[in-house]
Amino acid sequence: MKVLAIAGSNSEVSMNKHLVSYAASIFGEKAEVEVIDLNPFEMPIYKHERELANGVPQEAKDFAAKIDGANLLLVSLAEHNGTYSTAFKNVFDWVSRIKDRTVWNEVPMLLMSTSPGGRGGAGVLEAAGKRFPFHGGNVVETFSLPFFNDNFDKAAGKISNEEKDKELREKLIKISAIETILEK
């Protein structure tokens, strides 16, 4: 099984990258896992005239190829003002312009978010949960981790809140449909 873990942020210290990296680590050596953030996929801000003049950037095609090579997506989105980060939205916009494809290509997905506040990225999860299915998003489960600084141990690289950790593991089992693939 190939798992692509996407941190929907371009921050060098992204809490969503911490979360998605931890979720991916639960698979252990029983899956081929790749964790990416948006920095290698930075492109000019989408503009129709830019697309007409230069076509779709190679970075968008590379991002799409990573999705196409995965059996499972773990996507953890940063929330900026109640929705996606600008960096994520730009990658999303460019990939949506690739001819004859949907952005997510129907690959099963666990959609996640975390934030320092009590809503845990609820706004971006709602926005993505509504929008992604129109772009080939097969959102099987969602997971929110509120109060990141209280519920995640960055030094250990894992969720410190036992209840939230159990919830994440249960959702990973459901989405992967293979309980034995997860580390106990």
Results as ranks from 00 to 15, higher is better:
K2A: 12
G8V: 09
G8E: 06
S11L: 08
Y22C: 02
A23D: 07
A24R: 03
F27C: 05
G28H: 11
E29K: 14
E32W: 01
E32D: 15
E34M: 12
E34G: 07
I36W: 04
D37M: 03
P40S: 03
E42R: 15
M43V: 11
Y46K: 12
L52C: 00
L52R: 14
A53T: 03
V56K: 10
E59S: 13
A60H: 07
D62I: 10
A65M: 12
A65T: 15
K66E: 09
I67H: 09
A70D: 02
L72H: 02
L73Y: 07
V75Q: 06
S76Q: 06
A78G: 12
E79L: 02
H80S: 06
H80M: 04
A87V: 07
F88T: 07
F88W: 15
N90C: 11
F92W: 12
D93H: 08
D93L: 04
W104T: 07
N105K: 14
N105H: 13
E106K: 14
E106G: 04
L111H: 12
S115N: 08
G118M: 05
E126H: 12
A127K: 11
F132P: 01
P133S: 03
F134H: 14
E141F: 03
F143Q: 01
F143C: 00
L145D: 00
L145W: 06
L145Q: 02
P146Y: 08
N149D: 13
G157D: 09
K158S: 03
K158P: 00
S160C: 05
E167P: 00
E170S: 11
K174M: 02
I178C: 06
T180M: 08
K184C: 01
K184L: 11
